[in-house]
């Protein structure tokens, strides 16, 4: 560990500028992954020790070995993959629809202050409703299929996206607006060439928060009522009915991994699209 950092520090200036940095970066990544694996193993070991040492009832907290076995059988039977597929479809379709609707409405409201004044109280009121409490209504309206899950996902992320995008669109500086005015930009040009860019960091901030919330919403919707489609939430429900804690733990691990992946995807996308908003070195 110290060896790699020493190497990087001792590299020649030229080496550091060209391949050296990449090499040492790769080393740092490998090192980070190594540390994380160690942490994970240590955690699992502590878990196993605790379960054995304290003689915990496996129906309350199963041993990690049993959980991993469960996970393996879920993977090999193909159940896990199809469940991931269903839950991710609900999450991502809901995310796409919710994000597009939220951004569209944000543009309309911020461009038309009269409409915004009319809708503002409704938005505040609806935003205050705990969306999960509306889920039973979605089941009545849209049935036990995917639609009701997608509806809950949309309702969860719509408001953060809407409110953040409005804030973003309105965060242009007076100087920027005057610049566009001085160069006779049309309203549309001001929207797509100025406001859209200024709003982008706000939109991504909303995505960052709401994509993981969207996954939660999909799982909660499945827990509350699902038909023939077996997603990850449905799996948890099935294992719950059978008192199979190991199964629930296995699904929770998968959900945690999916959540991290989604969050990472948003971060990568925001780095790509918002490169200009970070200060650059020379």
């Amino acid at each position: 560990m110290t060896m790699t950092t020493d190497k990087a520090a001792g590299a020649t200036p030229q080496g550091r500028r060209s391949g050296g940095i990449q090499n040492s970066r790769a080393a740092v990544y490998a090192q980070n992954i190594g540390i994380k694996l160690l942490q994970l193993l240590a955690g699992l070991f502590a878990w196993e020790l605790a379960v054995r040492g304290l003689n915990v009832d496996p129906r309350i907290v199963p041993s990690p070995i049993v959980v991993l076995e469960m996970l393996l059988s879920l993977i090999t039977s193909g159940i896990l993959l199809s469940a991931i597929w269903i839950t991710m479809a609900e999450t991502l379709i809901g995310f796409a629809i919710g994000a597009v609707l939220g951004i569209l409405l944000a543009v309309i409201l911020s461009e038309m202050p009269v409409l915004k004044a009319i809708f503002q109280p409704y938005i505040v009121a609806l935003q205050a409703v705990p969306k999960v409490a509306v889920a039973p209504l979605f089941l009545i309206w849209f049935g036990f299929g995917m639609e009701s899950k997608i509806a809950l996902v949309i309702s969860i992320l719509f408001f953060p996206v809407l409110v953040n995008t409005i804030a973003g669109l309105e965060s242009t500086s007076e100087d920027q607006i005057e610049l566009m005015k001085a160069y006779r930009a049309s309203r549309w040009q001001t929207l797509v060439r100025l406001k859209a860019y200024v709003a982008l960091p706000f939109v991504f901030a909303a995505f960052e928060v709401s994509l993981v919330l969207a996954l939660t919403a999909a799982v909660v919707a499945e827990l509350l009522g699902s038909g023939t489609l077996v997603g990850l939430g449905t799996l948890i429900k099935i294992y719950d009915a059978r008192m199979n804690s190991a199964g629930i733990f296995a699904v929770l691990i998968v959900l945690s991994v999916l959540g991290v992946i989604l969050h990472t995807l948003v971060l990568v996308a925001s780095r790509y699209f918002l490169g200009w908003s970070r200060p650059r070195g020379k």
């Binding site: 500086s173 100087d175 920027q176 005057e178 610049l179 006779r184 060439r193 100025l194 908003s277």
Partner: peptide
Amino acid sequence: PSPEIGIAFQKAVLLPW
């Protein structure tokens, strides 16, 4: 604002993107 006029402001006000 007229197309005949070019304006330079006190601040550069460049678009960072």
